[in-house]
């Protein structure tokens, strides 16, 4: 039973709610396998995307999810200049509500923006990524993908590799995996380790080979290339040598380990092409599953009594 009208983060969900979303997504995955990939439950509803950061992937995935549910999908384009000028976020959000939207999908570089909108708006707010806080639907689609291969989460060893400190994907996945009782290892350089992150019940490794030993799931993260200029790393070449997923490093994981990446990938920076395209990679399935999971989220939130 989903309690909130909003999906702000995995942090706010119970394990039961996560499982309900995954089960519902399984139903939608079946729908997506049919010839007619559309069902009617959100007929007459309007989903508006409010993206303050560009993201073709997440937005397209949500747009397809909305359309498969028979909802209308509208993109509220935000000019970067108005954000810089400090045009009130609150006014923009209230405008979207007044236009008659039922859902607003928000992506913003500043953590906590979905929470701010949630306080202002009566309609459902879905966090499509906020700062270094959370990206809940990415974690849910990752859980869905892991579940389809590994069946259960309890006792599963999952390694998240890369720029943990700036990654909302990592954060949401840490919450989801720990709530579902998987063992989480973070593999990252000390400069990209969030403060006191071990308190979240995860292991922190700075050695890729040791961290990957016997893991069932490897999640790579996208490295923002500008980290180099900010002094987090000496060079991308050294980063790839230390933390890039290659045939050699992946060989330390279990033979049936799956390799995931939220996309878009920097080949040769966080992941070698041979791994990205290799038979352990489930990266394209993650994309397909993303639609089913986002359908489940929209569908379940539509059913929450306001």
């Amino acid at each position: 039973m989903i309690q909130s009208k909003d999906l702000l983060g995995i942090k706010e969900l119970t394990p039961e709610e996560i499982y309900l979303i995954l089960d519902t997504a399984a139903g939608f995955k079946d729908v997506l396998m049919r010839d007619i990939k559309k069902v009617p439950p959100l007929r007459g509803k309007t989903v508006v995307s409010l993206f303050f950061e560009p993201s073709t992937r997440t937005k397209t995935s949500f747009a397809l999810a909305s359309k498969r549910l028979s909802a209308d999908f509208v993109n509220f384009s935000v000019s970067t200049s108005s954000v810089v000028k400090g045009e009130s976020l609150k006014d923009t959000a209230l405008t979207i509500q007044a236009l008659g939207a039922d859902f607003v999908l928000v992506r913003h570089a500043s953590s906590g923006v979905p929470h701010l909108l949630s306080n202002i708006l009566d309609i459902s707010v879905i966090n499509a990524g906020d700062g270094a806080n959370e990206h809940p639907t990415q974690a849910l689609l990752d859980m869905f993908t892991i579940q389809s291969y590994k069946k259960k989460f309890k006792g599963l060893n999952v390694a998240i590799v890369g720029d943990i400190a700036h990654s909302r994907v990592a954060k949401s996945n840490i919450y989801a995996l720990t709530k579902l009782e998987a063992n989480v290892r973070l593999i990252c350089p000390p400069t990209l380790t969030p403060a006191e992150v071990d308190k979240l019940g995860v292991e922190v490794h700075h050695s890729l080979d040791k961290g990957l030993k016997d893991v069932d799931v490897i999640m790579a993260l996208r490295l923002q290339l500008e980290r180099q200029s900010k002094g987090f790393l000496p060079s991308l070449r050294e980063y790839f040598k230390l933390y890039g997923l290659t045939a050699d490093s992946v060989s330390h994981a279990k033979d049936d380990a799956i390799v995931m990446h939220p996309g878009p990938m920097n080949r040769g920076v966080e992941i070698a092409s041979s791994i990205a395209d290799g038979n352990q990679s489930v990266i394209l399935e993650q994309v397909t599953n993303g639609i089913a999971v986002r359908m489940a989220v929209l569908y379940l939130l539509a059913g929450v009594k306001k």
Binding site: S111, D130, N133, A195, E196, K199
Partner: peptide, 13 residues
Amino acid sequence: NEGFVSTIVGLKG
């Protein structure tokens, strides 16, 4: 403040 809370909320510490 940089610490566990900054990690939780994803705000720069």
